[in-house]
Structure formats: C-alpha cells, structure tokens
C-alpha cells in the first residue's frame, strides 16, 4: 500500500493560470488522482474532459427559513427578530437575505416557520480515460464555498487513491486565502503557489505563503507571465530566497496558453514545444524531484 502524497496548486488572486498549470501537470504525471477544489469556478473538467461519471452526490447547503402563509397570523414577532432584513412586510422570506439563523423559527408563536436544508451543489467522481480518476464539484449560485465541500471532495479523492493504490493526489485549489483554501491546503505535502508579477499578485503571494508556513507545509513558487514586469519578478525571487521558498520555475507570457484553453486541451498537449510548455515541463521535473524526496 502506497503512502498518499497530496499536492495542491493555489494562487491567491484568481486568473493567474492556476488551472492551466494544473491541467498540464495532469497530462505529465501518470498514476495520480486529480481533484478540482475550486468549486466556485470549477474549470478543470473543461480540459480533463471526463468520459463518464463513476458516482456523484448532492451536497447539503445552508439552511433557509420560509413562512407558511396558512399558519401565519402576521403578528410581526419574526419581523422584529430578524437581523438580516430577510422578511418582507407581507411575511415572505427572501432566500438570498436569509442567514438560516432560526430566530424566526424559534420565536414564532404559531409554528408557521419551517427551516429547510437546500442542496449547495453536487460532487462527481469521474473517469478521464485509462481508468484515471478525477473528482470535482459544482456549487449553486448564492451558496458559499466552505471548508466542508472541499473536505468532501478531497475525501472522495483519497478513497479513489486508496482503492487503486495510487500514491499521488493533485489538487487544483480555490482562489483567495479564506476558509476553502485552508481546507484544501491542510494535510498536503506540497503547496505550489502560482502568481504573476503584478502588485496584486505579489501581495497575494505573501498572504498565501503566510498560510502555508503556518501549517509548516513545504512551499514552491511558480511565476506566470514572468516577462511582463522584470522588476516585480526580481522582487518575487528575492522574496522566495529570503523566505526559503523553492522557486521552481517561470512561465512566459504566451498566447498559446489561451489557445490551448479554447481548444479544450492542456498546453503541453496542445503545443508541446512552445515557451510555456517547455517551462512547465521543467517545472514538472522539479516537482517530481521534490516528491521523490518525500
């Protein structure tokens, strides 16, 4: 039985090429389970193109209140109790405003309020061909991604890895630095941060490295579109050496990356000798070395 090593690719700010890098790594690594934890904007399936869904499950979401007009006497106690301005003067609850706190439910003297649990989204375990597994989830609009959906998705991936005796799980992490990111990072063996040389990119790199350090997880850094701002690229490199981070590669500004996305392919499959592909293949080799040392 192989030990399962999970590696996660995160970015802080969205749109830095996280999913494009993950898709390329999916093509280069053999013997792995792929996971998309970016459930707000799940995109990896658009490249990995699963052949079939092996199993799937709805995912319970936040609780919402609603008022039964038959039982409601319009006494106004709930209006007074609701802190979220979710109840209209004619006693209808706006589901987008309702926090599901249950104050109206607990205080209604006529039992006219119901609390229901909706579905927040669905997760899928899929087969991408050659019996390789890919797990992803999609949220419904207006639902919040929380640690729980990320935990559920990672859990399914580990089940797949274990049953097929696969030692590597590669996770496309969510953007930001909030709860879903924390849930996608905890317990992994390597965090790969992909950033770009822009003020927002540098700022987010610092925040996400702080997070990885907190959990004492080995962190590697990739800079995408490295050639758009040499000054900030150097600043990122200095930051990495100062903080003992593994700088594992830089990807040039390359229009082939967008073309590959439009073709529904990973960059290394689309144009294996373009600048971005060469850089990513080099990054792949460095990740292999890091994993070899685990």
């Amino acid at each position: 039985m192989k030990k399962i090593n999970e590696i996660v690719i995160v970015s802080g700010k969205g749109g830095t090429g996280k999913t494009s890098l993950t898709a390329a790594l999916a093509s280069l690594f053999t013997g792995k389970v792929m996971v998309d934890c970016d459930v707000d904007a799940a995109n990896l399936h658009l490249i990995l193109n699963p052949e079939k869904v092996v199993r799937q499950s709805d995912f319970a979401g936040g609780k919402k209140a609603d008022i039964d007009p038959e039982l409601c006497t319009k006494c106004g106690i709930c209006l007074d109790a609701c802190r979220f301005e979710a109840i209209s003067p004619d006693f209808v609850i706006d589901p987008f405003m309702c926090e599901g706190c249950g104050a109206c439910f607990a205080l209604c003297p006529h039992c006219a309020v119901n609390i229901t649990e909706g579905t927040a989204g669905t997760w899928y375990v899929t087969d991408t061909g050659n019996n390789e597994r890919f797990v992803y989830a999609e949220m419904h609009p207006g639902e919040d991604n929380s640690g729980k959906l990320v935990s559920a998705v990672r859990n399914e991936a580990r089940i797949e890895a274990k049953s097929a005796d696969i030692g590597l799980v590669i996770i496309d992490g969510p953007p930001g630095i909030g709860c879903p990111v924390i849930s996608s990072v905890t317990g992994t063996k390597l965090v790969i941060v992909i950033t770009e040389p822009t003020p927002a990119g540098v700022h987010d790199l610092e925040r996400i490295v702080g997070l990885a350090n907190h959990f004492k997880i080995k962190t590697a850094v990739v800079v995408n579109k490295f050639d758009i701002n040499p000054g900030l690229l150097n600043k990122i490199k200095d930051y990495c050496s100062l903080n003992n981070l593994d700088f594992i590669g830089e990807i040039p500004f390359d229009s082939a990356v967008t073309e590959a996305q439009r073709a529904g392919k990973s960059i290394v499959d689309y144009k294996s000798e373009c600048g971005a592909s060469i850089a990513i293949k080099d990054i792949f080799k460095r990740i292999e070395l890091i994993i070899g040392d685990m």
Binding site: A60, G61, G62, D144, S146, K148, A152
Partner: peptide
C-alpha cells in the same frame, strides 16, 4: 459534523 458548515 463532517458536513457542518461551520463549527465542526
């Protein structure tokens, strides 16, 4: 608790 949205 695995599916608790917060405070698990």
């Amino acid at each position: 608790n695995m599916s608790a949205s917060q405070g698990a």
